Amino acid sequence: MSVTKFFGDISREMRKVSWPKRPELVRYTITVLSTVVLMALFFAGVDLGISELIRLILE
Rank of each mutant, 00 (worst) to 15 (best):
M1Y: 07
M1W: 06
S2R: 00
S2N: 13
S2G: 14
V3R: 00
V3G: 03
T4I: 13
T4H: 01
K5T: 09
F6L: 10
G8D: 14
D9I: 05
I10W: 02
I10Q: 04
I10H: 02
R12N: 13
R12I: 04
E13S: 15
M14F: 09
M14K: 15
R15K: 15
R15M: 02
R15Q: 14
K16C: 07
K16P: 02
K16D: 00
V17Y: 01
V17K: 04
V17L: 07
V17T: 01
S18D: 04
S18M: 03
S18A: 06
S18W: 02
W19Y: 12
P20Q: 08
K21W: 00
R22V: 11
R22L: 04
P23M: 00
P23D: 09
E24A: 05
V26P: 07
R27N: 10
Y28A: 10
Y28V: 08
T29K: 12
T29A: 09
I30K: 14
I30P: 05
I30D: 02
I30L: 13
I30C: 08
T31E: 14
V32N: 09
V32E: 11
L33W: 11
L33G: 09
L33N: 04
S34H: 03
S34C: 04
S34K: 06
S34R: 11
T35L: 02
V36H: 11
V36R: 12
V37M: 05
L38H: 14
L38Q: 13
L38K: 15
M39Y: 10
A40N: 10
L41Y: 07
L41D: 06
L41N: 07
F42D: 00
F42S: 05
F42M: 05
A44W: 06
A44F: 08
G45I: 11
V46W: 09
V46P: 05
D47H: 10
D47C: 01
L48E: 05
G49D: 07
S51T: 13
E52P: 01
L53T: 15
I54L: 13
I54E: 06
R55E: 13
R55V: 08
R55W: 11
R55G: 07
L56M: 08
L56R: 15
E59T: 10
E59L: 10
